[in-house]
């Protein structure tokens, strides 16, 4: 059975086209683009909330998008135990909706960070099945508010339930720091308790094609399809 997916576009989303290409090229299945004012969502296996600056990041990154009309449907989709992936601004939106714990605050150095970063998987889930333990992935980040923060109690819950999907690490020859944006425990991506919702700051949709600097971003879709 073919894999169906959808990408939600908010005003100010700027990685929606990238996410659509990522899904089309890797899933070979049906891919829908859904405008934020829609009130229904087709039955799909995966929904992506893409990166960008939804509503100009006004108020707080992701805050206004989390009140969009389509969000009720997105929540229903997640409650049906189907996959939901928030990338960058999408991750911020997921924490604002409350589907994921914690918050993304400004990067430690208070500057936008657009560069290659290195991550590895922490705990196993369906989004990272095809990734080996200790395998280092090279995937670009591009964010101003990517510094994951939560209180100690929440952090313990995330650890005990094995909800931490990815953490930042050092690349083999790279000059990068181990924890590029100051996130608690270098967290780069987390899931919900049921592990069908993933939020991550790095952009796998910018690292999958032959001409990209890395193809490691493929592994996430390959994990879901396998």
């Amino acid at each position: 059975m073919s894999f169906k997916s959808a990408v939600i576009t908010f005003p100010g989303s700027n990685c929606d086209r990238d996410a659509l290409c990522y899904l089309k090229d890797l899933t070979k299945g049906e891919v829908h683009n859904i405008w934020h004012e829609e009130t229904s969502l087709p039955k799909v296996d995966l929904v992506i909330l893409p990166g960008g600056f939804s509503f100009g990041d006004y108020l707080r990154s992701g805050a206004m998008a989390s009140k969009s009309k389509i969000i009720d449907e997105v929540v229903k989709h997640a409650n049906d135990n189907r996959y939901l992936l928030g990338i960058c601004n999408g991750f911020q939106i997921l924490t604002e909706i409350g589907l994921l714990e914690g918050a993304l605050i400004r990067n430690k150095k208070l500057k936008f960070l657009g560069k290659n970063c290195f991550i590895k998987k922490k705990f196993k889930n369906n989004f990272n099945l095809s990734i080996k333990d200790n395998q280092i992935l090279q995937i670009p980040v591009a964010h101003n508010e990517g510094n994951f923060y939560c209180d100690t109690e929440t952090l313990n819950i995330l650890k005990n339930n094995e909800q931490i999907a990815f953490e930042y690490c050092k690349g083999e020859f790279s000059n990068t720091e181990e924890n590029i944006n100051g996130s608690i425990e270098a967290i780069a991506g987390i899931t919900n308790k049921k592990k069908n919702v993933l939020g991550m700051m790095p952009h796998p949709e910018r690292a999958y094609s032959d001409f990209h600097q890395s193809q490691d971003g493929r592994l996430i879709i390959e994990s879901l399809i396998s």
Binding site: N14, C15, C21, F112, L113, G114, P140, A142, H203, R206
Partner: peptide
């Protein structure tokens, strides 16, 4: 000058070579 360039998003749109 990575300090400068790292403050810019250079890979959005997915077509950067």
């Amino acid at each position: 000058k990575s300090w400068v360039f790292d403050q810019y998003d250079s890979t959005v749109m997915g077509d950067t070579i």
